[in-house]
Computed example of a mutant assay.
Amino acid sequence: MTLDLFDSDQPGYAQEAPAEGVVLLRRFALESDQSLVTAIESVARQSAFRHMETPGGHVMSAAMTCCGELGWVTDRRGYRYTQNDPQTGEPWPEMPRIFRELAVRAAEAAGFPEFNPDACLINRYRPGAKMGLHQDRDEQDFSQPIVSVSLGLPVVFQFGGARRSDRPMRLPLSHGDVIVWGGKVRRHYHGVLTLRRGAHPLTGDCRYNLTFRKAG
């Protein structure tokens, strides 16, 4: 599929529209990358990264933690959002202000005004990690978009259709890229291919992904 590329009013980034309801903001988070990584490290000191287990017993290759009013968890009991980190018993760390501001600005730039995220999932990928095609369907409010921020090593993002069997498009994501999707495609399948080995000057041998949702 041909990408529509056009300039933005904000210097240093550009927008692509790979499909209806999907907007890719190239380099949108680049100017605040150091502060974002510092905030990730702060969250992880309170709620450590962990490899969660799916209901079927599969251990996820990407490590995860969360921040905000709600955090997403998976275990043998199923997929769900919780107010507290099950490892600490304490509320998830407060969402850093720089996270929320970036998510709101990105959503607005993509045509989704008044985004109000209450959950941020933070995934840490090391070489060999991936995320299979899946739907984000555990939220209560599907009228608001998903905002996904990439930091560190590059990866190939897959965006599919309403059925798992629909062939996904492949979009290469680099450090600082933000992808936003919502509306009719809000619950479409998506994932990332296996992360290749590399070294990034800010994140080392890993990739971080911030995924913002309105969950409650």
Rank of each mutant, 00 (worst) to 15 (best):
Arg45Asp: 04
Gln46Arg: 14
Val155Gly: 02
Arg167Ile: 14
Glu94His: 07
Leu121Val: 04
Met169Asp: 11
Glu16Ala: 15
Trp181Gly: 06
Pro154Asp: 08
Ala215Asn: 04
Gln46Phe: 12
Pro117Asn: 10
Arg187Ser: 04
Gly182Asn: 02
Asp7Ala: 14
Ala39Gln: 00
Arg186Gly: 06
Pro168Cys: 13
Pro96Asp: 03
Arg76Glu: 06
Pro55Glu: 12
His58Ile: 10
Lys214Trp: 03
Ala103Thr: 09
Cys67Ala: 07
Leu5Pro: 10
Pro93Gly: 00
Cys66Gly: 01
Tyr189Arg: 12
Tyr81His: 13
His175Glu: 09
Met52Thr: 15
Gln87Tyr: 10
Val149Arg: 00
Leu173Glu: 01
Arg105Tyr: 08
Ala107Arg: 01
Glu101Val: 13
Glu101Asp: 11
Lys184Glu: 15
His51Leu: 09
Gly182Lys: 01
Arg27Ser: 05
Ala215Gln: 06
Ile179Ser: 01
Ser47Leu: 07
Ser47Ile: 01
Arg186Ser: 07
Val156Trp: 12
Cys120Ala: 06
Arg163Asn: 12
Pro172Val: 13
Tyr208Cys: 09
Glu53Ile: 12
Ser42Ala: 13
Asn123Ser: 07
Pro154Ala: 08
Pro127Ser: 10
Arg76Leu: 13
Leu193Ile: 12
Leu151Lys: 00
His188Asp: 09
Pro172Trp: 08
Gly57Arg: 08
Ser47Met: 04
Gly183Asp: 11
Phe28Trp: 06
Pro145Asn: 11
His175Tyr: 06
Met64Asn: 02
Gly57His: 05
Ile40Tyr: 01
Thr54Asp: 06
Cys206Ser: 03
Ser42Thr: 10
Ser32Thr: 11
Ala199Val: 09
Arg186Ala: 04
Pro93Met: 02
Glu114Lys: 15
Asp33Lys: 05
Phe142Arg: 15
Met1Asp: 05
Thr2Ala: 10
Pro172Cys: 05
Leu151Gly: 00
Leu151Val: 01
Gly204Ile: 02
Gly216Trp: 13
Pro93Phe: 00
Arg163Ala: 14
Val192Tyr: 00
Ser35Arg: 02
Pro127Leu: 09
Ala119His: 08
Cys206Lys: 02
Phe49Ile: 04
Asp177Arg: 05
Phe159Arg: 14
Glu41Met: 07
Pro168Trp: 06
Asp118Glu: 10
Ser165Phe: 04
Lys130Arg: 11
Gln83Glu: 07
Leu173Cys: 02
Leu102Val: 07
Asp4Leu: 13
Phe6Pro: 08
Leu3Cys: 12
Arg197Ile: 12
Ala129Glu: 02
Leu202Gln: 05
Glu108Ala: 12
Phe6Thr: 14
Glu20His: 10
Met169Val: 10
Asp138Leu: 06
Ser35Asn: 04
Gly71Tyr: 02
Asp136Val: 08
Arg105His: 11
Ala103Lys: 01
Lys184Gln: 13
Ser148Tyr: 01
His58Pro: 04
His175Thr: 06
Arg124Gly: 04
Tyr13Ser: 15
Glu41Ile: 05
Arg45Met: 11
Ala29Lys: 02
Leu70Trp: 05
Met52Pro: 05
